[in-house]
Design a protein around this nucleic acid. Structure first.
Length: 579
RNA sequence: CGGGGUGUAGCGCAGCUGGUAGCGCACGUGGUUUGGGACCAUGGGGCCGCAGGUUCAAGUCCUGUCACCCCGACCA
């Protein structure tokens, strides 16, 4: 491809709207342009990389025995109404009506549609196991699209669904997908980790996320270097920490005491008022879970993990209770909630983090405006409906597996695999007949990879101050030939010859034949991140050109044929993982 | 959805107490250049987000509205 002919609108300056490196570079390198918030057009250079990522995914899916198909993005409401997700998705789903006022949506994910087609077409155990996938555009009306393509409203996802006879079969299908994912992300040149994840509203028995380590990642990952335990923040189990401040008699329980604490509502204010650490309080938070009111207690310095809470409660909606509900539940204004004397009529479930039961003589709200209790002790003064881990893990916590020290890092979630079990097959009656002729629900798994996000993640891990540094496997072109002076016929002839030689060797080559100053060409070549650059300059007359890899600084002078062979060798060895 | 911010040329921005819009880059033309985003000359490009209002006069003041960005909440 001739750069002079190419639609490649690079930008010298950083667009004001872009915050993170991948977003800035995707705009600057002319890979994409924004159409609306969270909606982007991919331009030729960007689309080439996009398709290469898709192709890697496709090859690895096929290698794992999955079969590709494609479904519509425009879907009738009934498919989601049967599973209940027409409601569950809420405003996140783009909805529309056809001319007959029938409800449709733009598919946010396709469990129902795959389940339905398998239900309709598969009857016998002989047809199982079966894994199907598609690489298709998804639509989600995100509350807050963010960071360019990292969280967008239209995006391409590879979604795969496995159907097995039983759990053992699912384990095998799941394992195959796990391995395919590792191969896929390895081939994309990503440094990633696999974390234990919450299966959340998807239901099912297990789930893992593929996380690309990055400071701009939206997910927090807890990791133990000692034993390798890795889980995301939502899932990470917390080990209760006993805390005994000096001067607090942790051995014996002191008599319960009510203390007037006018206008002291927040933990910070309490710390000031009682002149002690936030670890000596237990906070009681009132939540609305669907139609129920529940109370959750964690130590004063901890945060409630709402994912854990929601999983325990099994509710669809979970939110902090509004002021009115808090007043009804506690009999006090917000800020004085506690475990003792909650409104009995509301039958409030009291969920207590195990850490609270280790505390002695601590402080809680008195459920009376302007008062707190001190010297509170679990069991003696109140009892939990249930004692269950309900807090967020923090840096330095004990590892739940080995007791080592937990570190927190950030990651970009590029892939997620789930063991769904029979949640959808039961709801949608997706059954097969076993050897005995008995109807059995299929055991399902689902497996997603965000293609756009993977592309952004690759950039986040592969750039420098001059631009993108594409791994060979996903680079839009392998080689860029830069004739320094287009008016020099020797340089141009040399460049053209190398261009032809490389093209006929099957290498994807750009030739920067623009009548631009060399600085401009070098800057653009660096910005768009082509892995190999061959510069044809002064020494072209002596048959010498310069050979440089984007990821390294050093430049080699080579004879023309040597440079061509070197480039071919470099490309072939980098792509040798192809099936 | 709450908080904050920004909308002026393709991109980045300036425009004060109101007087009919400017800079850099990019773009067209001519020339000189050619090893890390050249230089000279010249030219084109604007519904100042949109709608009301105040005023003799609004990019500027007031009201509303929309869009976009950031933080938070939320997220199969």
């Amino acid at each position: 491809m001739r750069v002079s002919q190419m639609f490649m609108p690079t930008l010298r300056e950083v667009p004001a709207e872009a915050e993170i490196p991948s977003h800035q570079l995707m705009l600057r390198a002319g890979l994409m342009r924004k159409l609306a918030s969270g909606i982007y057009s991919f331009l030729p250079l960007g689309y080439r990389t996009f398709r290469k990522i898709e192709q890697i995914i496709r090859e690895e899916m096929n290698r794992a025995g999955a079969q590709e198909l494609i479904m519509s993005a425009l879907l009738p409401a009934e498919a989601y109404q049967a599973s209940g997700r027409w409601e569950v998705f809420g405003p996140e789903m783009f909805r529309l009506k056809d001319r007959h006022s029938r409800d449709f949506c733009l598919g946010p994910t396709h469990e129902e549609i795959f389940t339905e087609i398998v239900r309709n077409e598969i009857r016998s155990y002989r047809a199982l196991p079966l894994t199907l996938y598609q690489i298709q555009t998804k639509y989600r009306d995100e509350r807050r699209p963010r960071f360019g393509v990292m969280r967008s409203r239209e995006f391409v996802m590879k979604d795969a669904y496995s159907f097995d006879r039983d759990e053992a079969g699912l384990d095998i299908s799941y394992r195959k997908m796990y391995e395919a994912y590792c191969r896929t992300f390895d081939r994309c040149g990503l440094n990633y980790m696999v974390v234990e994840a919450d299966s959340g509203a998807m239901g099912g028995s297990g789930s893992q996320e593929f996380m690309v380590k990055s400071s701009v990642g939206e997910s927090v990952i807890a990791h133990c270097e000692a034993c390798g335990y890795t889980a995301n923040e939502e899932k990470a189990e917390c080990v209760p920490e006993a805390y005994c401040p000096e001067g607090n008699n942790c051995g014996s329980e002191l008599p319960l005491e009510k203390v007037a604490t006018p206008d002291v509502k927040t933990i910070e204010e309490l710390v000031g008022f009682f002149n002690c650490s936030s670890k000596e309080f237990a906070k009681t938070l009132i939540y609305k879970a669907d139609d129920r009111v529940v109370a959750v207690m964690v130590r004063g310095d901890r945060d409630v993990n709402e994912t854990k809470l929601q999983n325990y409660l099994g509710c669809v909606e979970l939110e902090m209770a509004d002021e009115e509900t808090v007043e009804r539940a506690t009999g006090a204004i917000v800020g004085f909630a506690g475990p003792i004397g909650l409104n009995a009529e509301l039958n409030i479930e009291l969920i207590v983090d195990p850490e609270v039961t280790l505390m002695k003589n601590f402080i809680v709200g008195a459920n009376e405006t302007g008062y707190h209790y001190k010297n509170v002790n679990y069991e003696r003064d109140f009892k939990a409906s249930v004692i269950k881990d309900m807090r967020n893990i923090v840096e330095g916590d004990k590892c739940p597996k080995c007791g080592g020290s937990i570190k927190l890092t950030r990651g970009i979630e590029v892939g997620h695999i789930f063991k769904l079990g029979t949640k959808y097959s039961k709801a949608l009656n997706c059954v097969y007949l076993d050897e005995q002729g008995k109807e059995v629900p299929m055991v399902m798994g689902c497996y997603g990879i965000g293609v756009n996000r993977t592309m952004a993640a690759i950039i986040e891990q592969n750039y420098d101050e001059n631009g993108i540094i594409w791994p060979m496997t996903v680079a839009p072109y392998h080689v860029i030939i830069v004739p320094v002076n287009t008016t020099d016929s020797v340089q141009m002839e040399t460049a053209e010859k190398m261009y032809n030689d490389l093209c006929s060797a099957g290498i994807e080559v750009l030739i920067d034949d623009r009548d631009e100053r060399p600085g401009v060409k070098f800057k653009d070549a660096d910005l768009i991140g082509i892995p190999i650059r061959i510069t044809v300059g002064r020494k072209a007359g002596e048959g010498i050109v310069e050979y440089k890899l984007r990821k390294y600084k050093d430049i080699k002078e080579l004879k023309i044929d040597e440079a061509v062979n070197e480039a071919i060798g470099e490309v072939k060895s980098a792509l040798k993982n192809q099936p």
